[in-house]
Design a protein around this nucleic acid. Structure first.
Length: 715
DNA sequence: GCATGTTGTCATACT
DNA sequence: CCAGTATGACAACAT
């Protein structure tokens, strides 16, 4: 009885298999797995997998349809597919980038396609070799695409297959598709078959996206194209709704919305879209296909959900759409061209097909794309993308102006109107990086350039404007005493006495900042004397003065504050840097108080000491570094010597060993007068000076050695 | 708040 | 003797 039942069961199973082979749908309720499997996922039986196809594979070849291990095989396979599907939920960046690149190149190069077979094949080719082929492949003519389509495509899609896993050849959705095609009597071509069976749902999405983009860029399309695209989209929807997680749903909705727009634009022009030129068998009308597709409840619900999305997405205004496009492109690692010309993207979606077909070659070529650009959109796009940055930059710029220029202007006004301490203002204006000393407002105001230029140019001129200076510090020190500042300290020093009575100083130290010193001619000899010093000093000042830039009192050093408080008409740098002779000369020529002289000397001393301390520390660091180098070198040398010593000891021991061996060998062959062997402990070999070797008793040999030692000691 | 580095200053010896 | 230099020590400040 048990055997009979088993026989009947197996016979029933075989019958169902036969029915499935002829395309009749069979309900496998009897063989349904436990409800747990149905809930958790598609089981092998529920998927109605045609195991004849599996048997053709290496995995299923070992299983007989009646084998009791079949269900466990499918269960394991399903679990394996689920595990691989987990990995498949992530979008490989390479694939996404690939279809974007294809979209660019395809629209530019492939204006027309002879058939949808070519279209789909090109998309699949590109998709299957997206990780290796360059976009130039897409620039092949349609003829080449056609030739490529004749190749066995099952070999052309290994990258994605490997990515998915060679064992995961069929997902449930793929089997569903295949079942549908079989049901329709579709005998898919080798390409289609492998395409359907080799690609995961996610890969199909990418391929269809690529095709969708290509379709958008195709200028002339017949009804079959549209039918195909729609067909593919339906297939996509089936795959997505059944296999893909919700992670891609929004993305796919957008993609489908684009296709919906395309279809809306093309169906009007080509209402008779019922002749698929693509490999759909002639025996099955497209209407049947549509009926079959729409018979799926998931598909209907999805299309109902999709339609509002496309309607909603289309009327977006340009700015928001551009922003969304930009974010979308960023999220998809979009190509640069699409980022640069987002208006193309929006236009592609909104314009109808006839309008879109023409400018693509232009809009996608970077050189001639200006015509297709909408300046307003571009401006909005740029504004939307750069708005924050621009605001930040503007803010920074204004803050910089506030901090520098405006404060300088205000302080200058204070200095001129309220008797503000000129030193403070002068140090505010001190240019940190200026080596020339012509630093007054050189970069803080728009007029600074002309001012500096005029100053520098007029220095040698005989225009004779009093108070020449670009060094505002010197100017204002001079202004304190009624003297006129000089661009260079020595000029300032030697001209100051002559300018102390110059009432024009205050007029010269004005907002115009044009200070021309005509009196240096009177001191030409002195200027010549200090000319060399000036240039060395200028370089030093450029470095040293950088620490008191744009300063209020808090930025001034102690000496500077002291000098300012005592109204010392020299800058600290001047005091410190000038030679002793000039320093003494300066002190003697100026009528300075005792406290001023003391402070000046202290400033000079501290300044010198400061520089000395810096040099000292620098030297100390250099010494430390040199010592470190020496330590490293000595360590290396030590290591080398240790190695040499080890080598020498090794060779010495080796030679000793050889010598002992030789000794033993010699003594083993030595015989005395009676023919007895010689005892090496009693005798020793002695090498004479003439090279002869004698056998000497050890006691004699030791006594000779002692005598030799004594002789050497006596010496 | 503490550790560490930097810098300025002072005292002192030296040149 | 003076000016300058070198250097250790200390303090203030920054990191």
């Amino acid at each position: 009885m048990k055997d009979l039942k088993k026989y009947l069961t197996e016979g029933l199973l075989q019958f169902t298999i036969l029915l499935s082979l002829v395309g009749v749908r069979v309900d496998f309720d009897f063989y349904l797995p436990p409800i747990r499997e149905i809930i958790q996922g598609t089981s092998s039986a529920y998927s109605q997998i045609p195991f004849h196809s599996l048997r053709d594979t290496w995995e299923g070849s070992s299983l007989h349809p009646k084998s009791p291990d079949l269900d466990s095989f499918f269960t394991a396979k399903r679990l394996l597919e689920q595990v691989r599907a987990l990995g498949g939920t992530l979008v490989p960046r390479t694939e996404v980038s690939a279809w974007l690149v294809h979209a660019d190149s395809g629209d530019a190069e492939e204006g027309t396609f002879s058939t949808d077979q070519t279209l789909l094949t090109s998309a699949s080719n590109e998709e299957s070799s997206s990780t290796t082929d360059s976009p130039a492949n897409n620039q092949e003519g349609p003829s080449q695409q056609s030739s490529r389509s004749t190749l066995p495509q099952c070999h052309a899609s290994p990258p994605q297959q490997q990515h998915i896993g060679p064992g995961a050849s069929q997902t449930s959705s793929d089997f569903t598709k295949e079942k549908q095609e079989e049901k329709l009597g579709c005998c898919p071509s080798t390409y289609d078959y492998n395409y359907v069976h080799s690609e995961s749902g996610k890969t199909e999405l990418d391929e269809d996206v690529a095709q969708d983009n290509i379709e958008e860029h195709t200028s002339v399309r017949d009804s079959s194209d549209i039918e195909l695209s729609d067909n593919n989209n339906q297939r996509i929807e089936i795959d997505r709704s059944t296999t893909e997680p919700s992670l891609f749903f929004e993305e796919f909705i957008q993609l489908l919305a684009q296709t919906e727009n395309t279809l809306e634009g093309t169906n009007e022009n080509e209402p008779n879209a019922t002749q698929p030129a693509y490999r759909i068998p002639q025996g099955n009308s497209v209407g049947e296909l549509w009926q079959d597709f729409f018979s799926l409840p998931d598909l209907n619900s999805t299309l109902e959900d999709i339609q509002p999305v496309s309607n909603v997405s289309s009327p977006r205004n340009s700015s928001t759409q551009n922003a969304d496009d930009f974010g979308e492109m960023l999220s998809r690692d979009v190509s640069l061209q699409e980022v640069m010309f987002p208006s193309n993207l929006s236009s592609r979606r909104d314009e109808n097909l006839a309008q879109r077909s023409e400018p693509f070659s232009q809009s996608d070529s970077s050189t001639s794309s200006e015509g297709s650009l909408n300046p307003a959109n571009l401006a909005q796009f740029i504004q939307s993308t750069d708005n924050s940055t621009r605001n930040l930059t503007t803010h920074d710029l204004l803050s910089g102006i506030d901090d520098n220029v405006f404060d300088e202007i205000n302080l200058m006004s204070l200095a001129l109107e309220e008797g503000f301490d000129p030193l403070e203002v002068s140090q505010l204006f001190e240019e940190p990086d200026s080596d020339s000393g012509l630093s007054l407002n050189s970069s803080h105001s728009p007029t600074s350039a002309s001012i500096s230029d005029s100053s520098s140019v007029s220095f040698g001129e005989d225009e004779g404007a009093a108070g020449y200076s670009s060094d505002s510090e010197s100017v204002l020190y001079g202004g304190l005493e009624g003297a006129v500042g000089s661009s260079w300290p020595e000029v300032n020093k030697f001209c100051r006495l002559d300018y102390e009575q110059n009432s024009d100083y205050c007029d010269n130290v004005t907002m115009h900042n044009v200070h021309h010193n005509h009196t240096y001619n009177q001191l030409s000899s002195q200027l010549e004397a200090v000319d060399d010093y000036h240039y060395s000093l200028s370089a030093k000042q450029g470095k040293l003065s950088s620490q008191c830039v744009s300063g209020m009192d808090k930025n001034l050093s102690r000496d500077e504050r002291r000098a300012k408080s005592l109204r010392i008409p020299f800058s600290v740098d001047e005091i410190v840097s000038m030679p002793v002779e000039m320093f003494n000369n300066m002190l003697s020529k100026h009528c300075l108080t005792e406290s001023q002289v003391t402070v000046i000397r202290d400033i000079r001393r501290r300044g010198k000491n400061k520089v000395a301390a810096q040099n000292c520390r620098k030297r100390k660091l250099d010494v430390i570094l040199n010592l470190d180098d020496d330590v490293c070198q000595l360590k290396a040398r030590k290591e080398k010597l240790l190695k040499e010593r080890a080598q020498c000891s090794k060779s010495t021991s080796h030679m000793k060993q050889k010598l002992n061996d030789l000794y033993r060998d010699v003594f083993s062959k030595l015989r005395d007068e009676q023919g007895r062997p010689v005892n090496p402990s009693l005798y020793a070999l002695h090498c004479n000076s003439d090279g002869s070797i004698m056998v000497v008793p050890r006691r004699l040999f030791k006594s000779e050695q002692k005598q030799d030692m004594q002789k050497e000691k006596k010496k």
